[in-house]
């Protein structure tokens, strides 16, 4: 009891600390993604209770979760829609940091952040297949064809990620292992490092450390965060109820179905449509490297803004191209 009281006291003291005056809603975005990560992990663990990662049973077990398990449709819906919102918020967070130029003197944390972005993409990518319906199957199979065409390393990548050159039960199991066994640990580790660095280096402010008293404590910030958490939870819930997850029939490797990728993969899709596959993969890799190197590329504020705008324009155009064709 004594220990509990101590913890409480420590927490109180922490919350009473003065927060920088410039701290506003933009700065809470990163924190909100933390809540969504928590939501994803919680619902993910719940889904694991009934999900069966084998080609024979995966679709049926998802069907079962949606139809027979009480509130299973809701848990599944929250997991799916939460992921969409999660990705959206992570992207907005990245843009916020970039255009606030908050990566200055925090290069390492920027790099960690970009790696986290890639991890989130990997989560989404591996997660889609697990439903094992037609849409998931042919969506992932399209990626398999792209990777298979990558010279030299293509086959090795396939053997590592797919467990062979075919999208089959082996691949499903592997994606499952990545999705629930490997990526969560990577994500949690990186998030902890990310947060540690934020707390060590402080919240960035362009005009130096805000010394003047802001009149707001971290308690206020936490309450505002809670407000956002409640709001975003409500939004995810609403999406899950109004747009229930639809299954596109059991995956049938012999019946082709043309599938558009999810919105967050549209730029890559557009790029691959536009240029030959190997070149597309190379260009996409260059893009990721460029994002990683942003703190060094954007030493000059003008250059940073120019590059950022250019990057956004290119990505938007590619996405539009992918959407259209």
């Amino acid at each position: 009891m004594n220990a509990l009281a101590r913890v409480r006291e420590l927490l109180r003291a922490e919350l009473r600390q003065q927060a920088p005056y410039h701290l506003n809603l933009w700065h809470l975005l990163g924190g909100l993604t933390l809540f969504l990560l928590f939501l994803e992990i919680t619902t993910g663990i719940l889904l694991m209770v009934y999900y069966r990662p084998s080609a024979d049973e995966a679709y049926e077990s998802v069907f079962y979760i949606i139809n027979d398990v009480q509130l299973g449709w809701l848990i599944h819906g929250i997991h799916g829609w939460g992921a969409q919102l999660f990705i959206l918020l992570v992207l907005v967070h990245v843009l916020r940091v970039y255009f606030h130029e908050a990566y200055r003197e925090r290069e390492l944390n920027w790099v960690i952040g970009v790696v986290l972005l890639l991890v989130v993409g990997a989560f989404a990518f591996t997660g889609t297949l697990l439903v094992w319906d037609q849409k998931a199957f042919w969506g992932i199979d399209a990626v398999r064809r792209v990777i298979a065409d990558v010279p030299v390393v293509g086959k090795a990548i396939l053997y590592f990620l797919w467990g062979g050159t075919e999208l089959d039960a082996n691949a499903l199991l592997r994606f499952y292992v990545f999705h629930v066994g490997l990526l969560p640990w990577v994500a949690i580790g990186l998030v902890m490092a990310h947060l540690y660095l934020v707390s060590r280096q402080g919240i960035f402010h362009r005009s130096g450390v805000g010394a003047q008293t802001s009149g707001q404590t971290y308690g206020d910030v936490a309450l505002r965060g809670l407000l956002l958490v409640v709001l975003s939870f409500g939004i995810v819930l609403t999406l899950a109820v109004i747009f229930p997850v639809e299954l596109a029939g059991r995956a049938d490797p012999l019946v082709y179905q043309s599938v558009k990728p999810a919105w967050y993969f549209l730029p890559a899709y557009g790029l691959l449509k536009l240029v030959p596959k190997a070149a597309g993969v190379a260009l996409a890799s260059v893009g990721v490297l460029g994002l990683l190197a942003a703190p060094w590329l954007g030493r000059n504020s003008w250059v940073a803004w120019g590059l950022g705008m250019l990057g956004i324009a290119i990505i938007a155009l590619l996405a539009a191209y992918g959407w259209r064709w």
């Binding site: 206020d220 809670l226 109820v241 109004i242």
Partner: peptide, 27 residues
Amino acid sequence: RLLGLTLVWIFLLLVIVVISLVLRERQ
């Protein structure tokens, strides 16, 4: 389901109102 969602939203709005009241009070 929609009915349930409405009830949940009523509760969530309540929580939001309380939080903003607390925030205003602190300010």
